[in-house]
Nucleic acid binder design. Structure first.
Lengths: 166, 166
DNA sequence: TATGAAATATAATAACA
DNA sequence: TGTTATTATATTTCATA
C-alpha cells in the first residue's frame, strides 16, 4: 500500500497489488526458503542480483513481505502436546479485547492467535510439554481470567503449512 | 532426534532435547528474524562465528529448526479475506484422512491446516480475495467433496504470531 | 568434543551506466 | 534494470582447550 501507485499500465502483467511475475517468483521462493541467497534468488527469478535485491527490499517496504522467521519444531524443544483453544469472552468484557489478545499473545505456550467474528472470540494454537501443562494453561492461566466466559480445547494431531502457492 | 545422544551431563545447563542457553538464544533470535546474519547472531549469542554456524547447522540437522520462511501479508497480495473453516468428514471416509488432508493443503487459498482430535476433523486457515471466493471455496471446493460431512466457517478479524518465547 | 582465530570463498551492497 | 567495483559475510581450515 505504499510505493507503487494504482496505474497498472506501467509494469507488465500485474495481477494484484502491483505484483508482476518476477515478484511472485520471489515471494514463492522466499516463502518456501527464506534463507535463499540473493544470488540464487536472482537466478531463479531471471534477473540481475542488484535488481533482485531492490525487488526484495521494495516488497518489504511495501508490506508484502512482513518478515522472515525460522520455523521451530515444538516437539524438538520439548513441547510434545499441541492444542487449539477457542475462547469466548463475557459480553461486558468485549471492550478489553485488545488487552486480552495481548495477554494471550505473550503466553509462552502461544504459537498463534486468531481473533474471530462469530460466537467464538479467539482461537489460540498452543504448544506445551505435556497434558498437565495444558490442563494448567486452560484451567488456570486462561479460565481464571475474569474476561473469559468459556473455553473449548481440541488436541492437534498434526498441522502443516499450506501450499505457499503465491 | 539425531546427533546429540541422551547423556545430558556433557553440556552445561541443558533443559530440553539437549538445548543449552546458547541454542535457545539462537532459536529465539532466528524465530524473530530468520535473516539475521551469522555475524550478528554470533555476537548476540556470545560465541564465535564459526561456532555459531555449526550450532545453527546442528539445530537444522536435528530437526529443531525445520526451515526458514518469508512471512507474506495476504492482504498485500490481494487476499483481503481470511477465514477459519472447520471440517467434519463422514465416518466412513476417515480412512481417507491423509488423502483429504493432502487435497486441502494443496488448495491455493490454504494458509495452514490443523488435523484435530475430537468432533471436528480439520481446521483450515484460508485467505481469499473476497466473499465470493470464500463462498465458492466452502460451497464447492470443499463441500462437494464426498468425504465432507459438514463445514463451519468463521471470519478472521486479525491474527498474530505468539511470543516466540523459546 | 566443542570452540575460536585466521584465511579464503562467496555473497551482499553501492555506484554508475 | 543491469554491470562493475567494493564491502561485508559466510565458510573452511587448523590450532587449542
Amino acid at each position: 500500500m505504499a510505493a507503487s501507485d494504482s496505474s497498472t499500465s506501467r509494469r507488465a502483467a500485474m495481477t494484484d497489488a502491483g505484483l508482476d511475475a518476477v515478484d511472485r517468483t520471489i515471494l514463492s521462493e522466499l516463502s518456501r526458503n527464506g534463507r535463499l541467497s540473493n544470488t540464487e534468488l536472482a537466478a531463479r527469478a531471471g534477473i540481475a542480483e542488484s535488481t533482485c535485491l531492490k525487488r526484495v527490499r521494495a516488497l518489504q517496504a511495501n508490506g508484502v513481505i512482513v518478515g522472515f522467521h525460522a520455523e521451530i519444531s515444538p516437539a524438538a524443544i520439548g513441547l510434545h502436546l499441541e492444542a487449539l483453544i477457542t475462547i469466548r469472552l463475557h459480553a461486558h468484557a468485549r471492550g478489553d479485547l485488545r488487552r486480552f489478545q495481548a495477554y494471550v499473545e505473550e503466553l509462552p505456550a502461544t504459537q498463534r492467535v486468531y481473533f474471530l467474528a462469530g460466537d467464538r472470540d479467539f482461537l489460540v494454537h498452543v504448544a506445551v510439554p505435556d497434558a498437565a501443562a495444558l490442563r494448567e494453561l486452560v484451567s488456570d492461566t486462561l479460565s481464571l481470567r475474569p474476561e473469559v466466559a468459556s473455553t473449548s480445547t481440541s488436541l492437534i494431531f498434526a498441522h502443516a503449512a499450506g501450499s505457499r502457492g503465491i
